[in-house]
Simulated scan of single mutants.
Amino acid sequence: MPLHFVKNPRELQPAGAHVGRVSAGISSKQQLMDALEAALRLPAHFRQNWDSLSDVLKDLSWLPAGKITLLHEELPTFSTEDLGAYLRVLEESSRSWRLGEAYSLDVVFPRSCRHRVLAPLADLRPKSPWRRLKAELARDGSLPYPVEREFTSRKAEGFDFVMSIVEQRDGSTRQLANALSTAFTMRHWDRTRLARALPSLCIHEEPGLRETAVRILLILLDLNRMAPGERIPYDDARLCAALLREALALGVQENTEAVARKHLARMS
């Protein structure tokens, strides 16, 4: 989550490319803008309004590439309207940065302010835990550990949720790939159900989703040989060989192809 809450931000020394601190005692929009200009070394074209703040926080190119952390020693005490506008800018700007991009933006507040920070953002965040988790599946790359742990903590219900997304193709290809990866980590709830979903995904037209499915299949094939408790309905060598050949014909990454060809050689 781009917004973080800690007991005492004053004592926090986060690692990263740049750390900006907004001191306590901010009681007006003007004071906040001045503090942000100093904390983040905002460029000359910055105009002290919410739209301009949103633009620069989605840019950050004047700072060294890497993780940018904005620490608030206290929550500003200006009007409810301005506070809501500021928090929305922070929420939207920090979430605009995706995994693998040159920058990331973390925003830190005191833990004692958590409710006052999150309340104005309620309409920006999915209210249902399942809607929120599905939104997290749209992230680039693998899910953050706290998010994956939230899926797994829901046990069979969480597994059923991600498998339903996979089986019904209920989402973008990125969501499907992340749902499939999450289901794999929870496969002990129903290995057979996971295995049944793989064949069509191994030959999916979208390369990223196909790559994810083929890698999972290869891991399961290894587990089939090494761990009796992991056995799934993929003992039919001819079925697996045909599926892998079709996936290779469509294209997978070089290292995945090398592993797949080792399996094919073993099956022949």
Rank of each mutant, 00 (worst) to 15 (best):
M1A: 15
L3D: 00
H4E: 15
F5L: 12
L12Q: 09
Q13F: 08
Q13V: 10
Q13G: 03
Q13H: 08
A15D: 10
G16C: 04
G16W: 04
H18L: 03
V19K: 03
V19S: 04
R21C: 06
A24G: 08
G25D: 04
I26P: 00
Q31V: 01
L32G: 05
A35C: 08
A35R: 03
A38H: 11
A38V: 13
A39K: 01
A39F: 03
R41E: 08
L42Q: 01
H45F: 08
H45W: 14
F46V: 11
R47Q: 15
D51R: 15
D51W: 10
S52V: 09
S52P: 07
S52T: 12
L53N: 06
L57D: 00
L57H: 02
W62Q: 03
L63K: 09
A65G: 06
K67D: 10
T69P: 00
H72K: 06
E74M: 04
L75H: 05
T77E: 14
D82V: 04
L83V: 07
Y86T: 12
Y86E: 11
L87D: 09
V89C: 12
S93H: 08
R95P: 02
S96F: 08
W97P: 01
R98L: 11
R98Y: 12
L99K: 15
L99R: 15
L105Q: 10
V107D: 02
V107C: 08
P110D: 02
R114V: 01
H115T: 15
H115G: 14
A122H: 09
D123P: 06
P126R: 10
P126G: 06
S128D: 13
K134P: 05
A138I: 07
A138D: 14
D140R: 15
S142M: 12
S142Y: 07
L143N: 03
L143T: 09
P146A: 08
V147W: 08
V147T: 14
E148S: 15
R154S: 10
A156R: 14
A156V: 14
F159M: 02
F159C: 01
I165T: 03
I165H: 06
I165F: 01
V166R: 05
D170E: 13
G171E: 01
S172Q: 06
S172P: 00
T173N: 14
R174V: 14
L176D: 03
L176S: 04
S181A: 15
T182H: 05
F184P: 02
T185E: 12
T185C: 08
H188M: 13
W189L: 07
R191C: 08
A197D: 02
L198Y: 03
P199E: 02
C202E: 07
P207H: 04
R210F: 11
V214Q: 01
I216N: 01
L218D: 01
I219D: 13
N224L: 14
G229I: 06
E230N: 12
R231N: 07
P233I: 05
P233C: 02
D235G: 14
A242C: 10
R245C: 12
A249Y: 10
L250E: 13
E254K: 09
A258H: 09
H263T: 10
A265D: 11
S268F: 11
S268C: 08
